[in-house]
Amino acid sequence: MSEKQVTRRNFLYVTTGAFAAAGAASLAWPFVDQMNPDASVKALASTEIDLRPIIPGQSITVMWRGKPVFIRRRTQAEIDEAKKVNLADLPHPEEDSDRAQNPEWLVMVGICTHLGCVPLGQKGDYNGWFCPCHGSHYDTSGRIRKGPAPTNLEIPDYVFLNESTIKIG
């Protein structure tokens, strides 16, 4: 067999092998993608909430994308407490005004940023939230103050549709 023939033969083998491998690789995608959020889940990405029944000092928990969202109508004392904190003391410095569009209403995802437990309200050393799983303390603005959680409680995207209705997502 001449060298030329051998080259041509190897070229055929390599092309066939590579072509088959490319096909097998693209075949894998549907099997991976099927586990991603499906069309019906994606469609539930926003929810509207009526705020009228909530009085100052009261919180409600609503479901958004399968997660609890805390909506708290804060008392003046809580707002003052949140505002006077020195940012330098915070593990994750954020102004309260950056966390609440309207100081009276605090809207945040009720999931501890440590390992995903749901913190308890109006508990802990800072009179905000306290996660019972591993002892993270959050203040009245939902900022982490003490414990293993790395960041403040997450603020979801939301807008006030009018004075008494918000839309999350």
């Binding site: 995608w29 549907p30 993608d33 099927q34 499906d38 069309a39 889940v41």
Partner: peptide, 8 residues
């Protein structure tokens, strides 16, 4: 609704 569900 499932991604590529029809195909599978």
């Amino acid at each position: 609704d499932v991604n590529y569900g029809w195909l599978l």
